[in-house]
């Protein structure tokens, strides 16, 4: 080959994920419309994919009953945190613009199958569903309002854990939310925790694991430490189903794995 031969340009192939929906669990490819039509559930392996908070609310709350509360509570960049890729404030503002949400949990009063409830739904698309001061505050206020109005509490979690951009105060939200949940239970009200894919770190280690009833969806990832961290600590390969919904049920930390289509009916039954 000569030095000055023109090089053929590589044909531009769009990345597979631009064309197909790819199941994150079994990697099977399907038409995006098929994935959406199937409610983000993999038709091959039954993995229950992530939903936005609004999609979830539409599927759980009785039509027209959801009234959002605490939207005035939002994140604050009190540490003026910035890292190699930029500052927290711009990242979170971009997330707000993208998702239309201003915190990682959307809270509201509603009815579920005719039973009144306080419903909180986390959105993984909002900073990885991380637990910030605003998230913790919304949950604590929800507990207090639930006590005042005698509403059972239902929270759908989806989170990577505490929001490190908010430093120690994000850690303290674990204590705050757990203390508030404790008060709700003392007041004689039930709390149903739905741990959806994924629920890990500081959120699994606080309110998500404190449900009187803990339920999840098929194949959801639930755990405390990350798989890689554990493998690097114990120098062993972990089983494939480690930290899956099925694994947690087997070990006694989940009451029931509920299919998405059955979730609303299940919650209504528990509240009824």
């Amino acid at each position: 080959m000569g030095w000055f031969e023109p090089k053929a340009e590589k044909p531009k192939i769009p990345p597979a994920k631009a064309l197909w929906a790819i199941c994150p669990k079994c990697k099977s490819h399907m038409d995006k419309a098929v994935w959406k039509k199937n409610n983000c559930i993999c038709p091959k392996c039954n993995y229950h994919g992530r939903l936005s908070a609004r999609e979830r609310i539409a599927q759980v709350a009785d039509e027209g009953t959801f009234a959002e509360v605490f939207r005035e509570v939002s994140y604050s960049d009190h540490l003026k945190f910035h890292d190699a890729t930029g500052d927290y404030k711009s990242k979170v503002e971009a997330t707000i613009a993208k998702t239309g949400e201003n915190e990682s949990v959307v809270m509201g009063t509603c009815e579920i199958g005719g039973h009144k409830a306080m419903l909180g739904v986390m959105d993984f698309a909002f900073m990885g569903g991380s637990l910030g001061s605003g998230t913790g505050e919304r949950i604590a206020r929800a507990c207090e309002q639930a006590i005042a109005e005698r509403r059972p509490l239902v929270i759908f979690s989806a989170s990577g854990g505490a929001r490190m951009h908010e430093g120690i105060l994000s850690l303290m939200q674990m204590a705050k939310t757990s203390a508030a949940i404790g008060r709700l239970k003392d007041a004689g009200l039930p709390y149903i925790s739905v741990l959806t894919d994924p629920t890990t770190g500081g959120v699994s280690a606080s309110y998500a694991m404190l449900g009187d009833i803990n339920v999840t969806e098929p194949k959801a990832l639930i755990g405390f430490a990350g798989r890689r961290v554990i493998e690097n600590t114990i120098h062993q390969k972990l089983p494939d189903d480690f930290q899956s919904a099925e694994y947690l049920e087997k070990h006694g930390f989940i009451d029931k794995i509920v299919e998405r289509a059955e979730m609303k009916a299940f919650i209504a039954k528990m509240l009824g």
Binding site: G182, A205, S206, M209, L210, G223, A225, V229, T233, Q236
Partner: peptide
Amino acid sequence: YPGREAEERGQAEAIAKSLE
């Protein structure tokens, strides 16, 4: 501790319960 048994015996639940 980030270990296999720690997860199997409910590390997240144990911490959450302690806080409450």
